[in-house]
């Protein structure tokens, strides 16, 4: 019983601030405080009228899509190699790839910044993509790894044995069976990149991503309700994307007939 109460309080503590976001996004006042003064959609209407905001959203989308694609591609190669082949140094190499999961982001960010500046490369969206790919790849490897581990290697051999080439085998057998994992990896990488702040803040240059732009806006109190409105949209979008990702993961398991042994949601 006490455990149940504790669990409920814990969840309230975790998620209450997020519930406040939509509440104040629809509140008819520039001051973020109770009592609420009335309902308005003014803050949502203000979003498209802020060109800098739109630009930051575009930058973020480009960065998130690119990072997701790169991380998933790298994850696909890593996961397949890890599941199919034994090679010397497999464990250390895999551990090295998974390292960014536990490395403090601030360290990654500072280190990348120092290296990029030392190389004389200009900062911009592509340097953020670099950092985000590093960050997202371990997630992609984890998701795709489970897809490949549930995958009977004899399936590829059977296709090969029936006369198909390696590429056709990949297209006709491997890809359809790991596709749910790929979609799931893309969505999760996209979500991680979209709301990542620290690396983006350090590497972003003159074109800020959305989180970096929002952080800049917090200095102007009258802009805060607009930020709240945008935050609401982002939360809704994140929940949607994560749900879709999980749905694909489960469908993948059902398709290969494997038992559900994990997942993110």
């Amino acid at each position: 019983m006490t455990l149940r109460v504790y669990a409920i309080l814990y969840l309230v503590f975790l998620y209450a601030p997020i519930v406040l976001l939509p509440i104040f996004a629809f509140n008819d006042a520039t001051v973020i405080a109770f009592p609420l003064s009335g309902f308005t959609t003014e803050w949502f209407r203000a979003i498209p009228e802020t060109p800098a905001l739109i630009r930051s959203v575009q930058t973020s989308l480009v960065v998130a899509v690119s990072s997701a694609l790169l991380a998933t591609l790298l994850g696909l190669c890593t996961a397949r190699a890890g599941a199919r082949y034994a090679f010397p140094g497999k464990r250390p190499v895999t551990g090295f790839i998974m390292l960014p999961l536990v490395l403090p982001e601030i360290i990654v960010a500072v280190a990348l910044l120092v290296v990029l500046l030392a190389l004389g490369l200009p900062l911009g969206p592509w340097t953020v993509v670099l950092g985000h790919t590093l960050l997202c790849t371990p997630f992609a490897v984890a998701i795709l790894g489970s897809s490949f581990n549930n995958f009977d290697p004899a399936l590829e051999e059977a296709s090969y044995d029936l006369g198909e080439s390696r590429w056709a085998t990949f297209r006709l057998v491997t890809l359809p069976l790991v596709m749910p994992g790929i979609v799931s990896s893309l969505l999760i990488s996209f979500t991680i990149s979209l709301d990542e702040f620290i690396i983006a803040f350090f590497l972003t240059g003159t074109e800020p991503t959305l989180p970096v732009y929002l952080w800049g806006q917090l200095r102007f109190p009258q802009k805060i309700p607009v930020v709240m409105a945008l935050g609401t949209i982002l939360v809704a979008l994140s929940v949607l994307l994560l749900s879709v990702a999980e749905l694909f993961r489960r469908r993948g398991l059902a398709r290969t007939g494997a038992k559900d042994t994990g997942g993110f949601v």
Binding site: Y160, G163, V173, L177
Partner: peptide, 19 residues
């Protein structure tokens, strides 16, 4: 290679394409 040999195999796990 296997895909050019006049042999076909029945695998222990059957390797039926589940999709």
């Amino acid at each position: 290679p296997a895909n050019r040999r006049p042999t076909n195999m029945v695998f222990q796990s059957y390797a039926i394409f589940p999709h």
